[in-house]
């Protein structure tokens, strides 16, 4: 079972590369935000899998819970912040 968990974790890391591409090369700021959000939601599962592999779920579950909360707050705060960015608007009208 540990081997299967290891494979699932590695596959999740591989999927994070796709989201990382969007987070780095995203044409607009909000595209990057989507990439960061997707990475965060995969990280919660990855933390739980790491905890199960090392046999310390009781410790990693708290980190995963805090990470889920923090991811939500970060996305909310960032999108509220970009409400007032004028650069976004110009970028969109030029296209």
């Amino acid at each position: 079972m540990t081997g299967f968990f290891l494979g699932a974790g590695l596959y999740l890391c591989f999927l994070m590369m796709f989201s990382l591409y969007r987070a780095i090369f995203g044409p607009k700021v909000l595209d990057r935000l989507i990439g960061v959000n997707a990475i965060g939601s995969k990280t919660v599962v990855l933390l739980l899998i790491i905890g199960l592999i090392y046999g310390r779920v009781d410790m990693f579950i708290d980190i995963a819970l805090a990470y889920a909360f923090l991811n939500f707050i970060a996305v909310l705060a960032a999108s509220r912040y970009f409400h007032k960015r004028k650069g976004l608007y110009e970028e969109s009208t030029f296209e």
Partner: peptide, 30 residues
């Protein structure tokens, strides 16, 4: 605790999506 994570994600993920799309609308992206 894991079920608590599921419940929280079930509530927060639509809210985060809505927040991002709201930022896009206000920035005027077509």
């Amino acid at each position: 605790k894991m079920i608590l994570i599921i419940f929280f994600v079930f509530l927060s993920s639509p809210t985060a999506t809505h927040s991002i799309v709201d930022a896009g609308i206000r920035a005027g992206l077509r």
